[in-house]
């Protein structure tokens, strides 16, 4: 591995990308430290999802630097490599394998060898079994482990997806709108879960739910028109006139 360029877990510098003339990201710079839980807010079209696309290798930036763990240039890697490096991603719309059981979903997500032949001859070991049981308990799906994911409620799918990210054992988690469509109780439980996860790894959460962000009580970055508008505590950011103008409204 190359010498560390930064000490940050995630380092974006001057990243721009445009689609058919539309600038989705405009010289965006953004840094996440190891073990940090960071919230991102911003209006629709601010570039939140595009930023995640760039970090996870789905989209290539037109310019700018993206480094993971201080030394890995993410712009040269594809999704699978980046996932194997230890970046997990939860989509805006809960994306689980609907025709698999909850158990199989987690088994597939486990951080094991992922080649064709390793999977072809894979046998479930006691260790893996224990790990899956543990995650099931964490995301409160033990009772439904043999049900098809398609039959879960919306909130349960969100949790299953988070469980799958945990099974992946990532160093950095990108979570896109985890509480959309959840009840208030589920929302506050999710906040607790994320804070718990952030004890051992870095987490970036994109959310519109300001109550949820407040529950998290972490540093907030507000994006607008593809670059950072304001950064700081929730109170600092929500009092910033530019943020009020662009996002919160008067």
């Amino acid at each position: 591995m190359d010498a560390k360029i930064t000490n940050s877990i995630l380092y974006l510098d001057n990243v721009s990308v445009s689609f058919d003339g539309f600038r989705a990201l405009n010289a965006l710079s953004f840094v996440v430290e190891p073990g940090e839980l960071r919230a991102i807010i911003g209006p629709n079209g601010a570039g939140k999802t595009t930023m995640m696309d760039i970090i996870t290798g789905k989209t290539r930036p037109d310019q700018g630097e993206v480094y993971f763990d201080g030394a890995v240039d993410l712009t040269r890697k594809d999704e699978a490599e980046i996932a194997q490096l230890g970046i997990g991603r939860k989509f805006q719309k809960p994306t689980v394998f609907e025709s698999h059981t909850v158990w199989d979903n987690l088994e597939l997500a486990l951080n094991r060898k992922r080649g064709v032949f390793s999977t072809l001859f894979y046998r479930l070991t006691a260790e893996d079994k224990a790990r899956i049981e543990e995650i099931l308990a964490t995301v409160r799906l033990t009772a439904r482990k043999d049900d098809y994911a398609a039959n879960l409620s919306h909130g349960q799918k969100q949790w299953l997806e988070i469980g799958m990210l945990l099974a992946q054992e990532p160093k950095l988690l990108l979570v896109d709108e985890p509480v959309a469509g959840m009840t208030d109780a589920e929302t506050s439980e999710t906040a607790l879960l994320l804070k718990d996860i952030a004890k051992t790894r870095s987490v970036v959460v994109v959310e519109h739910d300001m109550g949820f962000i407040r529950d998290l009580g972490v540093k907030v970055t507000c994006l607008a028109e593809g670059s950072v508008l304001a950064e700081g505590s929730i109170d600092f950011v929500s009092n910033d006139p530019k943020v009020i103008e662009n996002y919160l409204g008067r």
């Binding site: 999704e79 997990g88 989509f91 394998f97 997500a109 951080n111 064709v116």
Partner: peptide, 27 residues
Amino acid sequence: SKYGKVLIGVRDAESRTRFLGYRVENM
């Protein structure tokens, strides 16, 4: 096999499989 389950994963949610670290093209 687990490989077969990955295949079904590719069929139903290709990008999820990719973001779990599987090389979908090899599969």
